[in-house]
């Protein structure tokens, strides 16, 4: 009997069981080889937890969410324009192609670094200070560039997934190219694009960790910067572990939501 002979439900159960087993084995190995008293002191130090709570939530997590939402909203706005440009003909198309390839091809860390340190030098220019730091505006600009490039591709494929007949029906009623795009194509593209865009939101939330390179003040730190500062000032990794747990508390439910949305979309078709 080969693997394909097994019923899909059974196969899925076996797959889930084996992944649980692997996780369990890793935990057991860690438990045997790990130095537990030392790990407790270094990673789950209760005294340090008391020091960093609640500001790790009220400042750091809050900033992470605010930065992610701002970069996502503005980035998606530009992404729609970029997607429409890429689907057009002429110079706008080539601008969009160049922009998208550039910022999808560069590591996000480099883009943020460039915004924070290279652009000010190259153009002799200062980012506006937000919360006492220029890093916020520079870093957010970097995130917006990256996100608009990624989301532009997601949105373009969503728009192209709308059946051709929709545009033809709309044009045959006398609606212009722009009216057709706005009232017929985009509303349908949005529905198609919601699950992959939620996915991009999760990626962006994790990429917001890269803002640490742009620099931040006490009030403008996001989770990773907060964790790193806490680690260096306390000589202890507990702040990092707490930051990691907070990331997972947000990303895992969102990833689960993406799965649910995708299933719902699949049923509708």
């Amino acid at each position: 009997m080969t693997l394909t002979d097994i019923r899909p439900t059974v196969r899925r159960r076996i797959a889930r069981l084996s992944s649980y087993t692997i996780a369990l084995i890793i935990v057991v190995i860690l438990a045997f080889i790990g130095d537990w008293p030392r790990m407790g002191r270094q990673f789950f130090n209760f005294e340090i937890m008391k020091k960093i709570f609640p500001s790790i939530v009220t400042i750091a997590l809050r900033n992470t969410l605010i930065y992610t939402v701002i970069a996502f909203v503005i980035g998606t706005f530009f992404a729609i324009i970029l997607a429409l440009m890429k689907m057009s003909k002429g110079p706008a198309h080539w601008f969009a192609v160049g922009f998208i390839e550039l910022f999808r091809g560069l590591p996000a860390l480099l883009t943020i670094f460039g915004c924070a340190y290279m652009i000010p030098i190259a153009f002799n220019f200062h980012w506006p200070s937000i919360g006492g730091s220029q890093g916020v505006a520079a870093g957010l600009t970097g995130l917006i560039l990256v996100t608009s490039a990624y989301n532009a591709e997601v949105i373009r494929s969503g728009i192209e997934a709308v059946p051709k007949g929709q545009r033809e029906a709309s044009r045959s009623l006398g609606m212009s190219h722009i009216e057709t795009t706005v009232y017929v194509i985009l509303p349908q593209g949005v529905r198609i694009v919601i699950p992959p865009l939620t996915n991009e939101f999760v990626m962006l939330l994790k990429d917001s960790a890269l803002l640490f390179i742009a620099g931040a003040t006490v009030k403008t730190r996001e989770l990773t910067t907060f964790g790193r500062d806490g680690m260096t000032s306390n000589m202890n990794a507990t702040p990092f572990v707490c930051a990691a747990i907070l990331y997972l508390l947000v990303t895992i439910p969102l990833t689960y939501l993406v799965g649910r949305l995708e299933k719902k979309m699949a049923v509708k078709k």
Binding site: G165, Q166, A169, S170, R171, S172, L173, G174
Partner: peptide, 19 residues
Amino acid sequence: DYVRTRIGMVFQQFNLFPH
């Protein structure tokens, strides 16, 4: 666009706007 309003068109696949 105006000329097209004078001509109604019906397609094999209906092409209604599903939203």
